[in-house]
Design a protein around this nucleic acid. Sequence first.
DNA 1: TATAAAATTTAGGCTTATCTAAATTTAAAA
DNA 2: TTTTAAATTTAGATAAGCCTAAATTTTATA
Lengths: 229, 229
Amino acid sequence: MRWKHLNETSMINLAEENYLKTIFNLSGNGKENVSTSAISDFMENKPSSVTDMLKKLSDKSLINYKRYNGAYLTPAGKDEALKVIRKHRLWELFLVKHLAFSWHEVHEIAEQLEHVKSELLIDRLDKFLGYPSSDPHGDPIPGIDGKYRLINNKTLGELAEGERCVLTGVKNSSSEFLKYLNEINISLNTRIRVLKKYAFDGSVLIKINEKHRQTVSREVSKNLLITPI
Amino acid sequence: MRWKHLNETSMINLAEENYLKTIFNLSGNGKENVSTSAISDFMENKPSSVTDMLKKLSDKSLINYKRYNGAYLTPAGKDEALKVIRKHRLWELFLVKHLAFSWHEVHEIAEQLEHVKSELLIDRLDKFLGYPSSDPHGDPIPGIDGKYRLINNKTLGELAEGERCVLTGVKNSSSEFLKYLNEINISLNTRIRVLKKYAFDGSVLIKINEKHRQTVSREVSKNLLITPI
DNA sequence: TATAAAATTTAGGCTTATCTAAATTTAAAA
DNA sequence: TTTTAAATTTAGATAAGCCTAAATTTTATA
């Protein structure tokens, strides 16, 4: 195949970048296996589409994929995912700091900006922003070297309306709590969107996997460890 | 067709935007007919591909297209083209003013940024830049209203190395000059890229239609009216 | 104006990323 | 452990945007 405007970056395209990013996020930033259905669910693509792409990414050595057994990122794949996340967070920060966007408005725009190809651009943006190590949320911005400070210390309760995250852990791991989570369809790597926060009692209306609406108490929201995405 | 993340903007996609922008530029910012081959040549796509897209854009009422006879923009198409150009120039200005890019480096990046969908984003960027009316080149930035100050007062000689333009007119229209231009394959709407400028005599090495290299004298370069693109 | 050359369109293919429906494999339940 | 349900994959289809090769139309030339 020929590329008309060949980029300095490898030949990873938009769709592939989105899959890599998703796998990174759903695996809790790491190397856990991510299932086809988790990806399908998150990206709102059909499982069969996901399977196709997993094969493709596997052929490119960006993921390790075993049929019927999900996938995880190779070092090369993780590098690419982190590059995209770095871009995403830098752009978000730019939008908030310099273009007066509020935090919940920026995600969709950054989702587009993160795919602009230019190493130089992103390095200049990094400089312009003063080499930030974290975005306004406190989430780490991967460095040029791909170094990434892992964190798992944010709770659902700290998110603002409109924000999205993936569950990466629980503070309280009593079986009653876990059972409750199970009942309302929340498990590790479940993605959650905050729809509304009620000031009077701190309860939170959330959407689980973009499917089920659910209200959880302040107590619950404080015990859910998450990674914003 | 269904759009997953439906944008506030109409349903014009990247490829379509590029065609509209190209037609706008090649028609001398206006309503002159642009031929299939001119578009094909400019975009480095095959003529048959162009025909396909012209049909599509015609169906969407963005251009007026008559078989074997080229196309020109409808008001709706012109609006869209101007929106893209507005975004392109605002981003270019941002890159130059705030990210320390030099002018010739920004085109390719702006080419990507111009397709990011968000009215709000571009209005905020406009504000951030202080509502500029022209880019560092002096080329007009269309306003939100789509108003566009037409200019045709720049010459090839004023471009820097690496910059591209389309010929929109000549200062000297003597037949010898026109004949000379003809001989070296330059005509109205021909696109020209400046490859090198020689300081000692002001001559300019150019690439014509991305095909022919040619050196022209300072005299010639000062008599070619162009629109940077 | 007839004919050759150039421009344009049509017809038919290819690739990518999707999808649906059916088959297969794995996991859960009885 | 058999059976059922869920997850996953395969097979085959579609739409976009591009391509090549062949047909058609327009333009230029003799």
